[in-house]
Design a protein around this nucleic acid. Structure first.
Lengths: 193, 193
DNA sequence: GTTATCATGTAATTGGTTACATGATTGG
DNA sequence: CCAATCATGTAACCAATTACATGATAAC
């Protein structure tokens, strides 16, 4: 049982779903491929934390719909009381930024622009999630029940949006510094693109 | 050659240092233990990207001081021109927050407070780095050479500080929502601590 | 005396990605 | 006709952590 297993349980205690749907649901908050999720679900089922029923579909392939068991719920509750591992970030682009003085301005700008595109895509996705669940998130957050699934989702999505927005903010800040110096130096850097 | 290898090269093209020092230097931006770094440096040396000399010390254990070779520099330059892998974050606490509705307010608050402490520690460390290199970071960022090691370090540290501060901001926001409801409901949640 | 820092390494294990494999349906 | 989505799985490999191992010196 690793963090991913508990992440899967966290979803399944709210709603039963297939491994495929779990993957899609978890992606924005914990990156995991199907090749990691399917064997893990099998192991969790063997351990008695989840169970599945086969749902046959005519238009789409059949699927296994997983649910959390009582044992799964109590394992999750135990895990919740444990202290958390430190946050881990692996941002290859930041390493490239650190070494960017070896290259040229156009290269650095390209990395920043790529990141901006990726952020915007993620932003649209998160805003979609926010809007999808906005009916659960009452207008007045102060009046919301703070120990409800809706509130937990709400603060999680807020956090994710905040992270993406701060990434965008930083990219634009660096881009502006780059543009300013390009103008000041009078060289036409656009030709290098 | 993985991301970590290029991260090591990025440091070594600026300054020669031991595996131990590389570990300390890289930690804030790319988590890696010594047990991953030492074997990797050996592999990189075999591949001709780095080389080392043995420096004997009387007060401390002897060390191997690594430097980047020409081949290492050009490998790094090639890597810089490649598109970056997506940002990966693994934040166990966020999963716990998502499942926090299964627990109680005190538990959620404890997680947030633990994170705040961790952030403050990291903040102090990053501010230390910023101050240490502040002489390189001229007061007027606009006048700084944008393709210098100093500028690259400057924007990297700015980004790291921004990330920590936004984390802190979010934690305090959630904590305040929690406190408000505790007051409103009139229950004395502090007794659960 | 015990803990922390400096300094290096290996071995075992877990975590995670890439590639291989299949197959239906829908939209462009 | 080709790509994308849905849906599941395995095998091989790479990345990363934990544990094992050593040993000096300095601070508390």
């Amino acid at each position: 049982m690793n963090s991913l297993a508990y992440a899967l349980l966290s979803v399944l205690t709210r709603e039963s779903m297939s491994g495929y749907d779990l993957m899609l649901r978890i992606q924005p908050f914990w990156q995991a491929k199907h090749s990691q999720i399917y064997p893990l679900l099998s192991k969790m089922e063997q351990a008695g934390y989840v169970e599945h029923i086969l749902v046959e579909q005519s238009d789409k392939p059949d699927k296994k719909v997983y649910s959390s068991t009582e044992a799964g719920l109590s394992a999750l509750r135990d895990w919740l009381s444990q202290p958390s591992a430190d946050l881990v970030t692996r941002d290859e682009m930041l390493i490239k930024v650190y070494a960017s003085w070896l290259g040229d301005r156009a290269e650095l700008r390209r990395h920043l622009e790529d990141r901006i595109v990726a952020c915007q895509k993620r932003l649209r996705h998160l805003e979609g999630l926010r809007d999808k669940y906005s009916s659960d998130f009452q207008a007045d957050a102060g009046a919301m029940d703070l120990l409800s699934p809706a509130f937990s989702s709400y603060i999680l999505i807020r956090r994710s949006l905040q992270i993406v927005n701060s990434d965008l903010e930083w990219c634009h800040w660096v881009l502006e510094l780059l543009m300013q110096q390009e103008l000041a130096s009078g060289t036409d850097m656009t030709s290098t693109t």
